[in-house]
């Protein structure tokens, strides 16, 4: 199998969490001889090549971050340049987000299924998982703990050619956290997480408090 992969993140490849996910995912995917070519939607110079590859390939995978509950505006701008395909093509998705719970991604996932149908493609399912915000902020070793599990999902995709198996569906994790976990996380949000964000902002040269109101 040969897979055409589109990284649908508007963030440049160097800082793209989606790209780091794809790095691990494709390791697993290629173990059984599957090959791939990858394109970046963030680089408009690639758009002609992406369109050409989109019409030539039969197994297409779009990986994207959730932007305000659905697909990013930049990816939509590209998709607007495509036309409906009449031939046999399978379109699958990797949908990732910062928020951790599965419920946060379901509305976006629902659109991706509709999108595949509207584009004239067979829907190959969506690999849904959140809790990825920190990928960019972590060192390589810590980052691997977050992105590493995608390698196994790549293996599954390499075997099945889609994300419709129970293994892929269960990859999402909990739809919502149990009450005691929410209580614990709330405490962490108000203490360690807050300090961590402040410390990180300082390292980026931030000079204002993070709840600063510039337009009030």
């Amino acid at each position: 199998m040969h897979v055409m992969i589109i990284n649908g993140s508007p963030r440049v490849k160097q800082f793209s969490n989606t790209d780091k996910i794809l790095e691990e995912f494709t390791k697993g995917m290629c173990e059984n001889g599957t090959t791939f070519e990858q394109y970046e939607i963030s680089d408009r110079r690639q758009w002609d090549a992406i369109r050409e590859a989109y019409y030539q390939n039969e197994n297409i995978l779009i990986a994207l971050p959730l932007y305000v509950e659905c697909i990013p505006g930049l990816l939509m701008e590209f998709l607007e340049t495509l036309h409906h395909r009449e031939d046999k093509v399978r379109l699958s998705f990797i949908l990732q987000s910062g928020f951790a719970e599965g419920i946060q991604l379901r509305c976006g996932e629902a659109y991706l299924e509709k999108l595949a149908g509207r584009l004239g493609c067979e829907y190959g399912g969506t690999l849904v998982k959140g809790d990825n915000f920190s990928i960019r902020l972590l060192g390589e070793e810590q980052r691997k703990k977050v992105t590493g599990p995608y390698e196994n999902m790549g293996r599954e995709f390499g075997k099945q050619g889609n994300f419709l198996s129970d293994t892929c569906r269960s990859f999402t994790g909990p739809e919502v956290f149990p009450a005691y976990v929410r209580w614990m996380l709330s405490l962490i949000f108000q203490t360690f997480a807050k300090k961590g964000f402040n410390r990180f902002a300082k390292s980026w040269g931030c000079k204002e408090p993070l709840d600063y109101k510039p337009y009030e």
Partner: peptide
Amino acid sequence: CAGCNHCWLKTP
């Protein structure tokens, strides 16, 4: 949106 996160972490 380019997803740079500056509006959260650099220039709030």
